[in-house]
Design a protein around this nucleic acid. Structure first.
Length: 502
DNA sequence: GTGAAGATGAAGGCTGAA
DNA sequence: TTCAGCCTTCATCTTCAC
């Protein structure tokens, strides 16, 4: 995360051996902020590591001050005070004033629960208040109380229902420049998204299932400070059912396979041995398969996203078929020495372009002459493809991606599409020290958009071995996303202040 | 030695009934 | 409101073929 070793050791001393990475990061951040504000380390140490000292100051606040939903076993985390508030306290101390985000009172929270979700915007429109519509915090019982029979991950709106949420509150500290956009898996270890939100300036996440944008499900959360009004989808609207997206399967699709959507496209695929087992099981039935056989085949087909390519013959999707489903041009990942396995892995880790483009579409009228983009964890360039398909030109892209395969794919796309802007490639986020970031901001004149989805390896439900949450080896890189974004914001704010004085 | 294929559950959310 | 059963999931590790 780029913290000096001494600061880390001090934080470990303060927080104890069992402290989580977020706790340590907060403690380091608080100490650094205090130091910058000229406050004695001893006081910083006391306030950053002592929950009681914080509570004393806000003792008049209700215990569920930060709760969005009513107290329940499902939302207990929201009764806890965010780490980010501790960090903010040091901002307040250094500036001599408090900055508090207005939170809904008990009557407003009750109103949220009682109003039907997804009926009409005016019925549950909030003026500057958090709104967790479509989030994975919406447990089934809360939704049923609210009159929702089928939980949906609609975010702040989808092309067919654009007015689900028409306004939302963005804390002053979160406002740009630059705009930023963060993405990760929606369903992960408990508390993960609370941490994401806490670090990313307490912005309300937007949870969207890409099944509304494509044939495949893809439940993802997004935190950004972009406007949410007047979004527009990419055209043409991609096919939304399996048989529209993969018409060659129609001929062989059995009536008892009722799927119309694909499940999430992952980084690995079903094996040839599995499809052969399925074929033999079906052939042995001599006609209509038994209920048990149907059940077995359906389980495997759903698990591995298998489609019908012949009589009794199922097969996994090939990279060339996945690319358009995810919104990439066909053969986007082909060539450049990448194997089928590498292509599948790269695609499984990428954005769903149509979904992201819908959110980014608001940038087009704001930046008619083009964008300067800081792209973290670029992968195969999902964000850049989305912006390109929206018709937004690039002034420059600083791309950070550790995978050589992904870098090659992205570089080839950049050349193939005759991009006129500057492309600067950086391999590792760890290389981005404060000095380096200062240099980049100066060189490019600041950035309009900081975008990226940090690795989800340790968050994904697919991971059976190292599902360690945000403390995992890969997923802890989220803190680098935050670090880099925060440094860029600070540098740009200073530049803006300096230029306005002159 | 290298890369591809195959085998490996559990966590968290959803659903429906009591 | 609770709970049991069901469904889904940006992966990792070992084995095997070359």
């Amino acid at each position: 995360m780029g913290f000096p070793e001494d600061d880390v050791i001090s934080a470990m001393d303060r927080c104890g051996p069992n402290a989580s990475i977020p706790e340590l990061a907060d403690s380091i951040y608080a100490a650094q902020t205090a130091k910058a504000a000229g406050i004695e380390d001893s006081e910083a140490l006391r306030l950053s590591s002592s929950e009681s000292s914080y509570d004393d100051e806000f003792e008049t606040e209700p215990s569920d001050y930060y709760s969005i939903l009513p107290p329940s076993p499902e939302n207990q985390n929201w009764g806890k005070r965010p780490f980010h508030e501790k960090k903010r306290k040091w901002d307040e101390l250094s500036h001599g004033k408090k900055k508090r985000t207005k939170q809904p009172n008990s009557i407003e929270r009750k109103k949220w629960v009682e109003k039907p979700i997804g009926t009409h915007k005016k019925e549950w429109e909030w003026t500057g208040e958090p709104n967790w519509i479509g989030s994975n915090w919406n447990n089934a019982s809360v939704l049923r109380r609210a009159g929702v029979t089928e939980p949906k991950m609609l975010g702040f709106g989808i092309p067919s229902m654009p007015d689900i949420v028409t306004s939302r509150f963005i804390p002053e500290t979160a406002m740009g420049p630059p705009y930023f956009y963060f993405e990760n898996v929606a369903i992960s270890k408990k508390g993960t998204w609370e941490t994401f939100s806490r670090f990313l300036y307490d912005i309300e996440p937007e949870f969207v299932d890409s099944k509304y944008f494509s044939v495949a499900r893809r439940k993802r959360g997004y935190i950004h400070n972009l406007p949410i009004e007047k979004r527009s989808p990419l055209l043409p609207i991609p096919p939304l059912t399996i048989q529209e997206a993969l018409p060659f399967t129609k001929e062989w699709w059995p009536s008892w396979d009722t799927r119309t959507k694909l499940n999430c496209i992952l980084g690995c695929t079903g094996s040839a041995q599995l499809t052969e087992r399925i074929r033999k099981a079906l052939v042995s039935c001599n006609g209509e398969p038994s209920f048990e056989t149907q059940k077995y085949v359906m389980e495997q087909c759903k698990k591995w996203n298998l489609v019908w390519v012949g009589l009794n013959k199922v097969a996994p999707l090939e990279p060339d078929e996945i690319e358009p489903i995810l919104g990439f041009p066909k053969y986007h990942t082909r060539g450049g020495g990448s194997s089928r396995t590498e292509r599948l892995r790269a695609l499984g880790n990428s954005f769903q372009v149509d979904t992201v483009a819908y959110h980014l579409s608001v940038l087009k009228p704001l930046f008619p002459s083009g964008l300067t983009v800081f792209s973290l964890f670029t992968g195969i360039g999902g964000a850049e493809v989305a912006l390109y398909r929206l018709g937004i030109p690039f002034k420059a892209v600083v791309s950070v991606e550790i995978s050589e395969v992904s870098r090659t794919i992205f570089r080839n796309w950049w050349a193939q599409t005759n991009q006129k802007g500057v492309l600067l490639e950086i391999e590792d986020v760890k290389q981005l020290t404060n000095d380096k970031l200062q240099h980049l901001v100066s060189s490019f004149g600041g950035f309009d958009l900081v975008i990226g989805g940090s690795p989800c390896n340790n968050l994904s439900g697919c991971n059976r071995v190292t599902r360690d949450g945000l403390e995992g080896k890969h997923s802890s890189l989220f803190f680098d996303y935050f670090r880099i974004l925060d440094v860029i914001k600070c540098i740009m704010a200073k530049r803006s202040k300096y230029s306005s004085h002159n």
